[in-house]
Simulated assay, not measured.
Amino acid sequence: MGRVTVPRRVLRLRKGVPSHRPDTLAAEEPMEIRVGGRPLTVTMRTPGSDFDLAAGFLVSEGVLHAADHLAGIRYCAGATADGGNTYNVVDVALAAGVPAPDASLERNFYTTSSCGLCGKASLDAVRTTAPWSVAADGLRITPALLTALPDRLRAAQKVFDSTGGLHAAGLFDAQGRLLCLREDVGRHNAVDKVVGHALREGLLPARGTVLMVSGRASFELVQKAVMAGIPALAAVSAPSSLAVDLAEESGLTLVGFLRGDSMNVYTRTDRIDLTDPADLTDPTGLPDDTEAEAEAGTAAEAEAGTAAEAE
């Protein structure tokens, strides 16, 4: 199908000098997800791994929990007026005995690529009950392993290199090995694609794993991790307050601002293995203060000293 990227010709300005050049954009198209022929939702996504996306979405909604819950997934033919297939409509067949999605989960509006919760019929449906608990997962991870994950995620992003416009989600084992990576214009879609792959491979619950995402950690991403049985979620940017609340309630380890050799661990800090003395080193010598606060104090003292000398 090859619809992951789209070429465009652009006017480029550099220091006021115009030129025309080709550019490569990340594709974004709507995809309708049906279950048993019944429309459930429409999401804006980057084409590719569509079956994983549909399966992962249904895991997040509490419809699917195991590979044998899924009887099959297919593209619906005849999606255009002339009978052609746009590959933008996916129908999921559930195994016998698997309940169909509750009607309250149907979207009143399409799901945008930036927000997987837009158009929820009810906010109560967001806090889906997970079929298993991540609280008892015995995962232990070192700071050194965590700090290596962003570079490993970035190195595996193929489409980002040509477009610069895609989020990524990667599932890693406790030794830092990449199990699955997916890219998409939407963070939640990239995670759904990873979760859907794990479901179809029979890997759920994904115990002893870390989900690494390229953006921020929102409530919905924590929810998706919990629903997949993933005990740890790491993000290069900030979490929301509701994401931290849900992680705390669920027993999930939530790591934010994972950049370079630093990070903030918001919940279940006991899973972080600090047995390496190097990991216990505090460069400020002030265990209750952040480095930024220490640096600010040093700068203030220096400024005060300069002022005193001037007087």
Rank of each mutant, 00 (worst) to 15 (best):
Y110F: 12
D151C: 08
L246P: 00
D282H: 15
V244M: 13
G229V: 01
A136T: 00
M1K: 10
V98G: 05
R21Q: 10
L233E: 10
A54V: 00
N264C: 07
E201L: 08
R140E: 04
I73N: 05
P47Y: 03
G16F: 15
D288R: 04
V255S: 04
A66Q: 01
V159P: 00
A190W: 09
L254F: 15
G72R: 12
P143H: 01
D82N: 02
D279I: 14
G72N: 14
D273R: 03
A67K: 07
A103S: 07
K15L: 13
T298W: 01
G119C: 03
R154A: 07
L252P: 04
W132E: 01
V10C: 14
V126C: 08
T269Y: 10
P287R: 10
S237T: 12
V89C: 09
E249A: 11
T253D: 07
T290H: 00
R271S: 11
E183Y: 02
L233C: 09
E301G: 02
D82Q: 03
H69R: 02
A27H: 02
A234K: 00
K158G: 12
C118E: 13
L53D: 06
H197G: 09
R127F: 10
V10H: 06
P205C: 04
F160N: 07
L286K: 04
P150E: 01
R177M: 10
L252E: 09
L221G: 04
T24L: 09
A292D: 01
E303K: 00
P143S: 06
R259G: 07
A247E: 12
G72P: 08
R268V: 02
G2L: 07
D273F: 05
W132P: 00
L258E: 14
A79L: 05
D124I: 15
A206N: 05
P47K: 06
C76Q: 12
A54M: 07
P287C: 15
A174E: 11
G138C: 09
S114W: 13
N189R: 14
E309R: 05
A206I: 02
G260N: 04
A156T: 01
S133Q: 06
V265N: 06
L153N: 03
S162Q: 06
L123W: 12
L242Y: 07
K158N: 07
V185W: 09
M227V: 02
P277K: 08
R216D: 08
N189A: 11
E291F: 14
K193Q: 11
V222T: 06
T46R: 05
S114N: 07
S214V: 06
G260A: 03
L171C: 12
H188G: 05
E201I: 04
A234V: 00
R38S: 11
P277W: 14
V42E: 04
P7T: 08
T86G: 04
L280Y: 13
L123Q: 15
G202N: 06
D91E: 12
R177L: 13
L274R: 14
L242H: 10
E29R: 13
A310K: 06
A296W: 00
P283C: 14
F160S: 04
R38Q: 10
T142N: 02
V6D: 11
A103G: 09
T253L: 10
R74S: 15
Q175N: 06
E220C: 11
V92C: 13
V210P: 05
D52I: 03
G119P: 00
V213K: 03
R21G: 11
P150R: 00
Y110G: 07
L105Y: 11
L64T: 01
G297M: 00
V17Y: 11
D276N: 12
V213E: 13
T209R: 09
S241R: 14
Y110M: 15
